[in-house]
């Protein structure tokens, strides 16, 4: 799935937050989508705009260090951030399906999202049906845990 995921390990502890923090990305009306996305890419991916793939890397799981396992609020916040990066890239790719750098960006963040969702489900209960794994003897946590509008897990 991730051709070069580990090569983006230098994007910092909160890659998605960096993206969200860029006002121009939240306001596509003021900035056309492509320059905005290119800015994401240039910031995180030195290879953006070049017709070659990033060099092979040796740092496969380093990005996992940034995932705040063990703290429910921080982990949910991390999932919010990385999920936003995934969805923003998804929209961009819908209109730019051959953009290698964007594809790379999407794959890397989607991997982080899936990992974080699995970790959250193991520790605190599932956020989606894809990560449900209720062991025998436990209740159906999907229904019994707080729903997002209750404000309980923030």
């Amino acid at each position: 799935m991730n051709r070069n995921a580990c090569c983006t390990q230098n994007m910092g502890p909160h890659g998605a937050r960096n993206n969200m923090g860029q006002a121009r990305c939240a306001m596509p009306v003021r900035e056309p989508a492509r320059p905005c996305m290119e800015n994401h890419m240039r910031h995180h991916h030195p290879d953006m705009g070049q017709n070659r793939m990033p060099a092979p890397c040796t740092c496969e799981d380093d990005w996992k260090q940034e995932v705040p396992v063990g703290n429910q609020k921080k982990l949910l916040c991390y999932i919010d951030e990385v999920s936003f990066a995934v969805y923003d890239a998804l929209l961009y790719l819908d209109t730019h399906p051959n953009d290698d750098a964007a594809l790379h960006y999407f794959n890397h963040h989607n991997m982080k999202r899936n990992f974080a969702l699995e970790e959250y489900a193991k520790a605190y209960g599932p956020l989606n049906i894809g990560t449900m794994d209720d062991d025998a003897g436990r209740s159906w946590e999907w229904a019994c845990q707080a729903w997002p509008w209750e404000g309980g897990n923030r």
Binding site: A143, C144, Q145, A146, W147, W149
Partner: peptide, 15 residues
């Protein structure tokens, strides 16, 4: 309707 439910079984069912 689910926002006004006080019962999580009903919240889950409506969602």
């Amino acid at each position: 309707q689910r926002f006004a439910m006080k019962n999580r079984i009903a919240m889950a069912t409506l969602t």
